[in-house]
Design a protein around this nucleic acid. Sequence first.
DNA 1: TTGTATGCGTTATCAC
DNA 2: GTGATAACGCATACAA
Lengths: 341, 341
Amino acid sequence: MNKRNFTIYDIAKEASVSPTTVSRVLTGNPVVKESTRQKVLAIMKELDFSPNEAARRLTKQQTDLIGFILPDITNPFFSQIYIEVEKKALEKGYTILLRNSMNISAMESTHLREFTERRAACIVFMGGRINKTNPDMYEVTEMQEVMSRVPIIMINGKMKGVKSYTIRTNEEEGIRSIVKHLVSLGHSKIALIGGSKGISSADNKLSSFKRILKEFHLEFNQDWQIFSDFSVESGRVAMKKLLENESLPTAIIGINDLIIYGAVKECRDQNISINDFSFVGFDDIYPSDIVYPSLTTVNHNYEILVNEIMKTIDNIIAGKTNKKGKLIDTHLIIRESSKEC
Amino acid sequence: MNKRNFTIYDIAKEASVSPTTVSRVLTGNPVVKESTRQKVLAIMKELDFSPNEAARRLTKQQTDLIGFILPDITNPFFSQIYIEVEKKALEKGYTILLRNSMNISAMESTHLREFTERRAACIVFMGGRINKTNPDMYEVTEMQEVMSRVPIIMINGKMKGVKSYTIRTNEEEGIRSIVKHLVSLGHSKIALIGGSKGISSADNKLSSFKRILKEFHLEFNQDWQIFSDFSVESGRVAMKKLLENESLPTAIIGINDLIIYGAVKECRDQNISINDFSFVGFDDIYPSDIVYPSLTTVNHNYEILVNEIMKTIDNIIAGKTNKKGKLIDTHLIIRESSKEC
DNA sequence: TTGTATGCGTTATCAC
DNA sequence: GTGATAACGCATACAA
């Protein structure tokens, strides 16, 4: 049923030229005479010629493929970044290949192998193993092996002993802006919920949080720091635990926005007024402007982040050297969920 | 800086066997003696050998690539479907390639061309031109040309005169379940907002809606049918227009969930109690369980939908024949946003 | 069980 | 301007 795929030989024969000439018009080589170019183009259109990508890749040793590994594209935090990178990549003529790891190490391995076999120009990596405070030995080794062939750009993560390109959000600054904002609203009893131990984005935020509380001469209350996970559901779980305390905070910071969605939901389910608390998230994913109450949260400056990613990719592909580490500033988006104490 | 890529020739030389033998262990051909297989594998590991994907594709004429075109992966409706297809594809050993069209016809063309050049086994297509009630002549022609080489599976859309595989939600049944539900709650004044004229998912829902109102002996009120678009923002716009009417409905159906998110937001901004209306969406994207009030909406039976997609892909790749058109039933998810009149 | 020779469809290097 | 010819790296038919 499927039409046969013609080759440049077919075109050449039909146009009474050599395959070389056909290849030249294909690559846009300007030496070929205009009349023959037209002739060849006409035949191509007539036969609905479509050049074989695999053959092309094989001869042109260099590739323009960007591999993109992230945990879950249904998570707005990742999709917001991914889509912008895809758009810019397309503009520049790069090919981009998305893979979801679901934070499963074995899937990451599969994807890394695939990208290596495809001779990707570089790999953008988010989540999973680069977000572990203590990654497995095997993961580190594999990462190093891959990197000896294809450069890896780690977004909001890093790996001890692996010197890749890293582009990170200045999370400490983000946490500071939250605390500052809450203090200005009169809050002094602040909780931090969500995330899980061993995941650096949670570990780091926690240690930043402790440090910053000191800066503001506030006390850290261990009862108000509750690990769970990073999902909406785990936000409910964390909030539930938090509410079991005798003494409660007046403000609640979530490790990310999803946690707060869950926390708010838990309040509603327990018939607790959401006005009893100020809520602040982290990430500023797009539903945070839609949910009620709209969420005060830390924005990653996605545009700058994506620009830095693209700049790094460009440099890698152009063979230029890069600064290995970049830190992106955040900005606080103030919405309804945070209010006077 | 990058390590050289070894070939099967390098491995062969090092292992003192022929390249053919190396190729055999690579493809898992069982004829090779266990001892030589071990020897070859050892060398491969030692040299960190990685087979060149492009070369492989070139010799094995057949490909396992699935192209996936959708408007925007940040839209949960699409990402929910995509991620499930990706998971199952990975299990089956297929390779999947995602492309966002942003509903731009030229981008669709670019992606279609790319997939053709990659000799994709099939293309899954959502949104854009297959969702136009009257597609351009060029779009139809191009689609037909592509389909003469690679089969296209259209999800929730179709194209006049193009006989592709189609898998569609039974939208009329979905609308019927909404109206039935609202009527059972005592509503008789029902609005339909969002979507835009010329997009079949909106056109079809509208005509279904009219038909079904008749079934229930209710009158269609043109003032309560407002086209806008498919985004949250357009939901606000539509709601704003609706509220300008002297006489208002008691229930509001959105062309999709996003429209209702916007409509609810507009109510809040105008200090209109959201309890004045019952809201029902369509799609059951995941934030609909998170937003407040949680949204009554029509679920596409995503699992069945995705299974049908996979079944169709399997059959195409296996060379079996398929039923060309499939219709998936929906089910209504009742949450807080719909209530007694 | 292993090896030789050839093809896959394109691009690149030479000549002419 | 154009055309032979040789890669590119792997898989496979055929031979041994």
